[in-house]
Design a protein around this nucleic acid. Structure first.
Length: 487
RNA sequence: CGGGGCGUAGCUCAGCUUGGUAGAGCGCUUCGUUUGGGACGAAGAAGUCGCAGGUUCAAAUCCUGUCGCCCCGACCA
């Protein structure tokens, strides 16, 4: 490594992001203490720094769920085998990755119990008991839970055997209502991704082969990672009457007819945090979007000649900011200021507040933005003590906006509207980004593209040019689709 | 689940080819001096060499098995 490169590499043991995204990603997850590998294969410990991000994700999503009329509940972790096997497609889809409990205490169980890979089944069974009349509908419930899928290869956040997520499960009287709900929650996810996680996404419908097992239609939001691979960040499923028929969820309608309900399910997992890490991080480490940051601003007091008045002032200002609703911390540990700067940058704290003798004298603090590089215009701002509470809000919003703008610029510069077949295949193979084409929608066509390029449809939307032919195969196109290799 | 790589101190790794006293840097502890971009000095602590067998007078080193992790594929959120 050249001297220049060595100097650039500010954070020890974090390799440059552009050179090897995988190595960078793993190093950041570990060094920023988001996760730790555990003695259990494929399972990670979510450490306080990581859990803090999860809590903020929960808070923002949950308030959106509540605002759209949903309530939280909790269902059992274990699902009897006989119940699981009723919806054929669903079972087939999940069978390879279900873990089973076969013994309890000293006894061998007469019936195996599945550890939930998802909860459509157990929730469907309960809904069948609870729903009698059209007056009982809709049911709008969400649960925050862990699930387990027996994965072969795992990576922190992106794929672990046990993971945290939320799963919403709703039941409706009509197909139209269920579809409306499915699309509403997709909008919620898109809103969350863009306005909380600062990640622009493409929202749309999944192709048949990418659909959730047992769903009539699956929608997703898809984000683009720096290596040109897409990351499915949340899904929303219209389950039609597939589950209500399998689990006999019926109600008497206003005309005294027995009808099967229409159900939906929708989920976002801690995988979203993986998207946040990869999208926003840089060579100095993590950059957490302010709304997800466990610590929004960290005070670094500079002590000179044993005079700790800057430390006292930092605590005083921090107290005031907490009172104003901010999540702040004072780093009064016995390390040098320079060490602390690097440390908190690596951990991704959006704002650093320096307070040294010079600041004390001028009655102000120096606020440094994590989203800007060193020496960049606007990276440092001097803020008088009294203006700190108001100014902090402004700066945090600015950080969010600039992070979103950067991610948006990346997505847009790596989205290609392609109408030439060769170019389409080349771009897919090269992992160029989101490749937008007019597409026929045929599974055989998608399979051919996948075999040739490893890319698949991420999601689809209405055909943009009426009468267009499929760019991949030449048949009449029915939709526009984003193709990309995916995580 | 296929292909490749790696498990030695908290971290990054050397030592293994050719068996013979357990190593370095960083970090950690104590004391002192320091503190506006990863401070300096002195003293100190720390490893059943992933685990289990085997070969040998003797194994971190050779052999077999096993577990785990990383990367690339296939599969999935």
């Amino acid at each position: 490594m050249s001297d220049a490169l060595q100097q650039e590499q500010l954070v020890k043991e974090i390799p440059p992001k552009a050179a090897d995204l995988s190595a960078w990603y793993t190093a950041v997850c570990l060094k920023a203490e988001l996760v730790s590998y555990s003695p259990v294969r494929g399972c990670v410990v979510l450490r306080p720094a990581g859990f803090g991000m999860w809590e903020n994700l929960q808070k923002h999503l949950d308030e959106r769920f509540k605002a759209t009329g949903h309530e939280n509940a909790y269902f059992p972790l274990l699902i009897p085998e006989s119940l699981l096997t009723k919806e054929a497609e669903h079972v087939e889809g999940f069978a390879p990755e279900v873990a089973w409990v076969t013994e309890g205490g000293q006894e061998k169980l007469e019936e195996r119990l599945a550890i939930r890979p998802t909860s459509e089944v157990i929730i469907g069974v309960m809904y069948a008991k609870w729903i009698q009349s059209h007056r009982d509908l809709p049911i709008l419930i969400n649960q925050w839970a862990n699930v387990l899928r027996w994965e072969k290869a795992t990576r922190p956040f992106l794929r672990t055997m046990e993971f945290l997520w939320q799963e919403g499960h709703t039941a409706h009287a009509t197909a139209a209502e269920a579809r409306e709900e499915t699309e509403r929650m997709l909008d919620v996810y898109q809103d969350f991704a863009e306005n909380v996680a600062a990640i622009p996404v493409y929202a749309g419908a999944k192709s048949a082969s990418e659909r959730f097992p047992g769903a009539v239609e699956t929608f997703s939001i898809e984000a683009l990672m720096p290596d040109g691979k897409a990351l499915q960040s949340a899904t929303s499923h219209d389950l039609g009457q597939n589950f209500s028929k399998a689990y006999d969820i019926t109600f008497a309608d206003a005309n005294q007819q027995i009808q099967h309900v229409y159900t939906t399910s929708w989920g976002m997992s801690w995988r979203m945090l993986g998207a946040v890490i990869m999208t926003h991080g840089d060579d100095r480490g993590l950059r957490i979007p302010p709304k997800l940051a466990p610590i929004e601003a960290v005070f670094v007091p500079i002590v000179r000649g044993g005079d700790t008045s800057t430390v006292e002032k930092a605590h005083e200002l921090a107290k005031g900011l907490r009172g104003a609703g901010y999540r702040v911390r004072v780093d009064d540990r016995d390390y040098t200021p320079g060490w602390k700067y690097s440390e908190w940058e690596m951990r991704g704290v959006p704002l650093r507040i320096e307070i040294g003798p010079r600041d004390l004298e001028s009655g102000s603090v120096t606020v440094v933005r994590r989203d800007k590089s060193k020496g960049e215009d606007g990276a440092k701002t001097s803020v008088p003590f009294g203006e700190l509470p108001a100014k902090l809000r402004e700066l945090l919003d600015a950080v969010h906006d600039s992070m979103y703008a950067q991610a948006k610029a990346f997505l847009e510069s790596h989205t290609f509207v392609v109408s030439d077949r060769d170019e389409f295949f080349t771009k897919c193979r090269e992992r160029a980004g989101m490749i937008d084409i007019a597409w026929c929608g045929r599974p055989e066509c998608e399979a051919e593209v996948k075999t040739a390029t490893s890319a698949t449809t991420r999601n689809t939307r209405a055909l943009q040019t009426p009468g267009a032919k499929c760019v991949a195969c030449g048949e009449p196109a029915t939709v526009n689709a984003y193709f990309a290799q995916s995580y």
